[in-house]
């Protein structure tokens, strides 16, 4: 969903650039506390993984494709502030080097794919994580729903911006329906990829999933099964 130059007028683009700059400034402060010994080496990997998988457009209905946005995935892996930095680097490289997403639209894209997608994806993830069981399945479900919702909400925010400062004079209703409709489908892909990648990392190195550290803490506090077994044998 990389917005090209020209869709939004200069005033709106300046506004989103200011929002993006403020968000990145906050992220530079916030990420300092996230970038500990485990998260710091993961930041680069998260960014390159999002960049690479964003190249993999998958087909959705009606001759249309979509790709991972990656905000929710990145936020669960390295924390929301570091995720904003990762997505900003990805979007900058895409806009400046690959002409993917406009230059005057860079602020818009950082706002939508960075701030909005991460805000929604991580917000929903945290909300669900608090109420679902503290298990691997609970964690993956929380992340999957967060990832799914982040895509149509980002599409909806684009429509809002388009309503404020869209250059073309077209009816907003059909644009909203089309954008949300197709991005609900793309959101399903977002959820599938997010859950698959997080599941894989949780299997190999659960301690490297920042959003899943509560699972490890719970496990550390649980009685060790071997001790419980030994006691049972002794009792017999």
């Amino acid at each position: 969903m990389h917005v090209p130059d020209g869709f939004l007028d200069a005033t709106t683009s300046t506004g989103t650039a200011a929002v993006a700059a403020a968000g990145v400034a906050l992220a530079l402060r916030g990420s300092r506390h996230e970038l500990d010994e485990r998260t710091a080496p993961m930041a680069g990997l998260t960014a390159v993984f999002v960049f690479a998988v964003q190249m993999m457009n998958f087909p959705v209905a009606f001759g249309t494709s979509g790709h991972l946005m990656g905000g929710a995935l990145a936020a669960v892996l390295v924390g929301p502030w570091t995720a904003v930095l990762c997505l900003t680097v990805v979007l900058m490289v895409q806009a400046l080097v690959f002409a993917d997403g406009g230059l005057t639209a860079l602020g818009t894209n950082v706002t939508l794919l960075g701030l909005v997608a991460i805000g929604v994806g991580y917000g929903v993830f945290r909300g669900l994580r608090a109420v679902l069981p503290a298990t691997r399945t609970g964690l993956l479900a929380s992340a999957g729903v967060g990832a799914f919702l982040s895509v149509p909400v980002a599409a909806l925010v684009f429509v809002g911006l388009f309503g404020l400062g869209g250059v073309a004079d077209v009816a907003l209703g059909p644009v909203t329906a089309a954008m949300v409709g197709v991005h609900l489908l793309i959101g399903l892909g977002e959820a599938v990829i997010t859950v698959a990648v997080l599941g894989a990392v949780l299997t190999v190195r659960p301690d490297l999933v920042r959003g899943g550290r509560h699972l490890l803490r719970a496990r550390e506090l649980a009685p060790r099964p071997d001790l419980a077994g030994a006691t049972a044998v002794d009792a017999r």
Partner: peptide
């Protein structure tokens, strides 16, 4: 990867604002 237009591009074409890019 699929080379079909992405969700935003397809919407823009279909809703008549693709040409403003």
């Amino acid at each position: 990867a699929s080379s079909a237009p992405d969700g935003l591009e397809a919407t823009a074409e279909e809703q008549g604002f693709g040409s403003t890019a």
